[in-house]
Nucleic acid binder design. Structure first.
Lengths: 75, 75
DNA sequence: CTTAAATGTAAAATTCACTTGACATTTTGT
DNA sequence: ACAAAATGTCAAGTGAATTTTACATTTAAG
C-alpha cells in the first residue's frame, strides 16, 4: 500500500519573520528562480532535497522547520 | 556566488542498525525501486524531498538523521 | 563447491523539478 | 491617481530523478 505522503511548507511564515524577505531575495539566496520559489511556496510541487536544504539554509533553520510531511493511508 | 551544496547520507549505517535491513526491504518500505535506493545510498544523486521523507520514515528517524548537507564556496 | 540472496551496473524511457521569458494582477508608496 | 515593486500564471524546453528490464558480481549458507 503506497503510503502516500503530503508535504507542506512554512515558507510564507519564514519570509514574514525574516523581515518580510521577498520571494526574489529568497530565490537569489537559495540559488533558484523566482518562479520556482512561488511554485514551491504555493505547494504546486515539492523541491529536490538539495533545493530544500538551500532554502532552509537561506533562513538559517533546519529543513524540518521549513517542510512538514504527513503520511496518509497505511499498511 | 552559487553556494554549492554537497549532500551525504547515512543509509548504510541506518540499514545496519535496523537489523541489517535489506535494500530491497527499504525500497519497498519507502515506495521506491531497489535501483533508486542503491543509487542514493551510493551518492550518485540525491532524492526528491518526498522520497527523502519516506526513507526517513522507513527508519523512523528525522530527515536530518538520514541526510547531511555541507555548503562549500561562499560570499 | 554450489545455490540462492543481496548487491551492483547499465541502458532506455518516463516523469517532474527547474529555468527562461513574457505578461497579468495585486500591493505599496508618493 | 500613478508608478514601481511584488506576486502570480502560462508555456516551452532542459536536465535530473526514478522506473523497468536485464545481467554481472559479491556474500552467506548448505
Amino acid at each position: 500500500m503506497a503510503k502516500k505522503i503530503y508535504i507542506s511548507n512554512n515558507i510564507r511564515r519564514l519570509r514574514f519573520f525574516a523581515n518580510e524577505m521577498t520571494q526574489q531575495e529568497l530565490a537569489e539566496k537559495a540559488g533558484a528562480s523566482r518562479q520556482t520559489i512561488i511554485a514551491i511556496e504555493a505547494g504546486k510541487y515539492s523541491p529536490s532535497l538539495e533545493l530544500a536544504f538551500r532554502i532552509a539554509d537561506a533562513f538559517g533553520v533546519k529543513i524540518g522547520e521549513v517542510f512538514d510531511y504527513e503520511v496518509r493511508g497505511e499498511s
